[in-house]
């Protein structure tokens, strides 16, 4: 068993990431905070372009550079600052301490390498084993994710989408990482396979006591497997809490908007209420609260000042001018 130096498996504080392109500076992350306790799962929820994948890639320090630059902030893996690591040291952390499952299994595997070679590569790099032992372990990993070991000799094009995602998961889990970043692992899969893959991930995570960052825009998945939830908007967490905080004591208007845009099973005739407008252009963010232009409750102050964190309890916080220390405990938004 690992000895944990810090309470948190991963602890990101005040992270700023920019993509400096010819057309302007895209501010992808603007003071991102994220903490996951050992063995827990955090759901990172937000729209396309909110900075979810950038957060995941930042942890691995795999932001495409150029144009991506980590401008400031800290990323600590079990208390150790990843920002100070050299590229070589990161090579020893990637795949061993932190693994990532990517969104699209169709393109995430190398088409000219056999599946077992791709799993074994990670094992060979991080564990002192021979090539044949690595291949053997790779086959065991395949069995673990529900694929017969002898199919390891095949190439990715011989597998279906769901099977490919299982292979990607096997690669990610091959060296038993302490942190698993899952970037929309089921988005590209059809619904029946989604449930299978999620169930499998949940089991494997519990088996190895892995912490997990679940990047998704599906609140159903969050309710299913996450312990805590961070709602991200324009590169910043706007609301964070455990499942009960977020689902039962929703505070932020954006979070509320996300729930309202889900179909209501009890009243199927009810119209969906989408959040009006689009995400602000990350190359040209508003001066005040980033959500202000789309917010039904926007006030004058929202246009000019960025909201600070207001805590409802030890874990649950929200960044919104609607709240202060006095009213944060009170009921839901619509009662206001």
């Amino acid at each position: 068993m690992r000895e944990n130096k810090s309470k948190y498996s991963i602890d990101i504080e005040d992270l700023y990431v920019e993509y400096r392109t010819d057309y302007g500076v895209v501010k992808a992350l603007n003071g991102m905070d994220l903490k996951i306790e050992h063995g827990k799962t955090l759901g990172l929820v937000g729209e396309t372009g909110a900075g979810k994948t950038t957060t995941g890639l930042s942890i691995l320090k795999l932001i495409p550079d150029p144009p991506g630059v980590i401008v400031g902030g800290s990323i600590k893996l079990d208390g150790e600052d990843l920002m100070e690591k050299t590229e070589k040291e990161m090579g020893q952390i990637r795949g061993k301490e932190i693994s990532m499952i990517f969104q699209d299994p169709m393109t995430a595997l190398n088409p000219v390498m056999t599946v077992e070679e791709q799993i074994a590569e990670s094992i060979e790099l991080h564990e002192q084993v021979s090539k044949s032992e690595a291949i053997e372990k790779a086959r065991a990993m395949l069995e673990l994710v529900g694929i017969p070991g002898e199919r390891g000799k095949e190439y990715p094009h011989q597998f279906s989408g769901g099977m490919k995602q299982r292979v990607v998961i096997a690669i990610a889990l091959a060296c038993n990482p302490s942190l698993l970043i899952a970037d929309e692992p089921t988005t590209a899969l059809d619904v029946t396979i989604q449930a299978q893959v999620l169930e499998m991930m949940k089991e494997l995570k519990e088996k190895y006591n892995t912490s997990m960052l679940m990047i998704t825009h599906d609140l159903g998945i969050v309710a299913e497997i996450c312990d805590t939830v961070s709602i991200i908007y324009a590169g910043q967490v706007v609301e964070h809490g455990n499942l009960e905080d977020i689902f039962e004591n929703t505070r932020h208007p954006y979070t509320e908007g996300l729930f309202n845009s889900l179909p209501n099973l009890k009243d199927r005739k009810a119209k969906l209420k989408p959040i009006k407008g689009l995400m602000p252009d990350p190359a040209n963010l508003p001066e005040g609260c980033a959500f202000c232009p789309r917010c039904d409750y926007a006030m004058e102050i929202c246009k000019t000042q960025k909201p600070e964190k207001i805590y409802r309890n030890d874990g649950h916080y929200v960044r919104c001018h609607l709240y202060n220390e006095e009213n944060i405990q009170e009921g839901r938004l619509e009662t206001r």
Binding site: L60, E87, Q92, G95, F102
Partner: peptide, 15 residues
């Protein structure tokens, strides 16, 4: 720029 190159790098394979 392909995804599988990113996958390889996320395994810790050197450049």
């Amino acid at each position: 720029r392909q995804d599988y190159i990113r996958t390889a790098r996320s395994k810790g394979v050197s450049n």
